[in-house]
Amino acid sequence: MRDSIIVDMKYADLDIINGQYGVERHHCLGGPNRKKADEDGLWVPLTPEHHRTGKISAHQSTEVQKWIENIVEQCRKYNIPVFMKPSLTDIWGEELIQEFPKALIHA
């Protein structure tokens, strides 16, 4: 498992939302791509409440859509591909954005 390329590893034990300890890895690629997320460091640290159990968690809340929109906006600003995993379908409410980095595209 590779260090996160999204979060500075000196903060990897802290929730990216509120800085609390006791985090889980939220993979930015899901399903069959989860292993690829581990290999490429595509994960962020979240407490269980922010990751999967709370009303504002990445896997539960429609309020997270605004957070996701902000992430997409920042990725567009810095020309970073966006790949939304299927678990975001209900939250996003639109067709998922699934772009691959050029290095992963094999013609």
Rank of each mutant, 00 (worst) to 15 (best):
Arg34Ser: 12
Arg34His: 11
Lys35Asn: 14
Ala37Tyr: 05
Asp38Asn: 13
Asp38Tyr: 07
Glu39Lys: 11
Glu39Trp: 02
Asp40Thr: 00
Asp40Gln: 07
Gly41Lys: 09
Gly41Ile: 02
Leu42Ala: 06
Leu42Gly: 05
Trp43Met: 09
Trp43Tyr: 03
Pro45Thr: 02
Pro45Gln: 04
Pro45Leu: 07
Leu46Ile: 07
Pro48Glu: 04
Glu49Trp: 08
Glu49Ala: 10
Glu49Ile: 06
His50Ala: 05
His51Lys: 02
His51Leu: 04
Arg52Lys: 15
Thr53Asn: 10
Gly54Lys: 07
Gly54His: 04
Lys55Gly: 14
Ile56Arg: 14
Ile56Asp: 14
Ile56Ala: 04
Ile56Met: 11
His59Tyr: 08
His59Gly: 00
Gln60Tyr: 06
Ser61Gln: 04
Thr62Lys: 14
Glu63Ser: 08
Glu63His: 09
Glu63Gln: 11
Val64Met: 14
Val64Arg: 11
Gln65Met: 12
Gln65Ile: 10
Gln65Glu: 13
Lys66Phe: 14
Lys66Gly: 10
Lys66Arg: 11
Ile68Glu: 01
Glu69Trp: 02
Ile71Lys: 02
Ile71Thr: 05
Ile71Leu: 12
Glu73Leu: 06
Glu73Trp: 11
Glu73Ser: 13
Glu73Arg: 11
Gln74Tyr: 09
Arg76Met: 10
Lys77Ile: 08
Tyr78Trp: 14
Asn79Cys: 04
Asn79Tyr: 06
Asn79His: 14
Pro81Asn: 06
Pro81Phe: 08
Val82Trp: 12
Val82Pro: 07
Phe83Trp: 15
Phe83Val: 05
Met84Pro: 03
Lys85Cys: 04
Pro86Asp: 13
Pro86Arg: 06
Ser87Pro: 00
Thr89Leu: 09
Thr89Gly: 00
Thr89Ile: 15
Thr89Ser: 10
Asp90Ser: 13
Ile91Leu: 07
Ile91Phe: 07
Ile91Arg: 02
Trp92Ser: 03
Trp92Lys: 04
Trp92Val: 03
Trp92Arg: 03
Gly93Ile: 06
Gly93Arg: 05
